[in-house]
């Protein structure tokens, strides 16, 4: 279990993480979702003590990470691919880390096999592809067979097979009752992997709920409209809950109105529309909407309480 309380990190004038409070529960996969620069990595770095919080605290299983007597057996972290000296072999890197906790070399060979690095374990890490680097990072994370897994953008640079492997690994570890915390900027990936989502934007938590609730809450109707009188139409459609985006001189994207309503408004204003296409909003777009408009969503979440983990996802 990871517990962050009013966790804050300030770099100069920028509040990278701005007073976030959340709990990551064991036994399920918790996704940590947010656009680049939202504060995901900084939060993860604070969990393992690489960054010192400006304010607030974060604990893993009840105490600060650095206060655990066997940190590697408590938390396995993949922070950035290739946190390794380039001239070192994968196996030596793992051996050096294992030595700190007197973890036997047999376990090193085990995680090498587990992550499919057997063929390249003795090669220098400098020559690894991004995907191989990620696998080595996972091997490091698994080294101490930890209670908590912390994976920062683990699918970056992985091929489809690797992505699937990470997904299964995360779900398997969670099914063993472990705490799994995965960050990503890809809603689609999280939708397939996570049970619970914590969404962060501009350093603040903007949603913390079971995944179904978050996807459901953002399914607003979206349409693409083409007209020669784009500005007049935008004026006609403008309302508090409608989001209008001018895509080019004659194209507008409308979120929050059914296409029937758009057509009616255009007719009322005598505006000629020569294309009106309803777009089924993807998860990705739902997430974009979520992170673009954090305040609005916050009230949305507050009104509906999370209802525990779902059982049907596997």
């Amino acid at each position: 279990m990871i517990r962050a309380e009013a966790l804050t990190k300030v770099y100069g004038a920028k509040r990278a993480v701005d007073g976030v409070t959340f709990t990551v529960q064991p036994g399920k996969v918790t996704g940590f979702l947010g656009p680049n620069g939202a504060g995901k990595s900084t939060t993860m770095r604070m969990i393992v003590g690489l960054d010192r919080p400006t304010a607030g605290t974060v604990t893993v299983n009840g105490r600060k990470y650095a206060e655990h007597s066997a940190p590697l057996r408590e938390v396995g972290a993949l922070l950035e691919a290739k946190s390794v000296h380039k001239s070192r072999s994968a196996r030596t890197h793992l051996r050096a880390l294992a030595a700190t906790h007197s973890i036997p070399n047999s376990r090193v060979d085990e995680v090498i096999e587990l992550t499919g690095l057997g063929g390249v374990a003795k090669k220098k890490v400098g020559g690894f592809s991004l995907g191989m680097g990620q696998r080595l990072g996972i091997a490091v994370a698994l080294l101490g067979d930890p209670q908590t897994l912390l994976l920062d953008e683990p699918v970056n640079g992985l091929d489809p097979e690797g992505v699937l492997w990470i997904r299964n690994l995360a779900r398997h570890q969670a099914s063993l009752g472990k705490t799994v915390f995965i960050s990503s900027h890809l809603m689609s990936e999280m939708a397939l992997t996570a049970d619970h989502l914590i969404v962060i934007g501009r350093g603040r938590i903007i949603a913390d709920a079971p995944i179904e609730q978050i996807i459901g809450g953002q399914n607003l109707p979206t349409s693409k409209v083409k007209t020669d009188q784009a500005e007049s139409l935008m004026n006609a459609l403008a309302a508090e809950h409608v989001q209008l985006t001018r895509l080019d001189a004659e194209t507008i994207q409308v979120i929050g109105l059914e296409s029937r309503v758009i057509a009616q408004r255009a007719l009322d204003q005598q505006i000629l529309v020569h294309e009106l296409t309803p777009i089924k909003q993807s998860l990705e777009e739902a997430y974009m909407a979520l992170t673009q408009n954090e305040v609005e969503y916050q009230s949305n979440v507050g009104s509906s309480q999370p209802v525990g983990a779902m059982e049907s996802r596997a």
């Binding site: 066997a70 000296h85 070192r88 030596t92 050096a96 030595a99 700190t100 906790h101 101490g144």
Partner: peptide, 28 residues
């Protein structure tokens, strides 16, 4: 709730272990 001795084996972080780690890195 702490790490139980699982598949990994091994113990706590010790100065001796960290020394050994440093020498492995150094020699590599």
């Amino acid at each position: 709730r702490s790490a139980t001795p699982g598949a990994a084996g091994g113990g706590n972080v010790t100065f001796f272990g960290v020394m050994r780690s440093e020498f492995i890195k150094f020699a590599s």
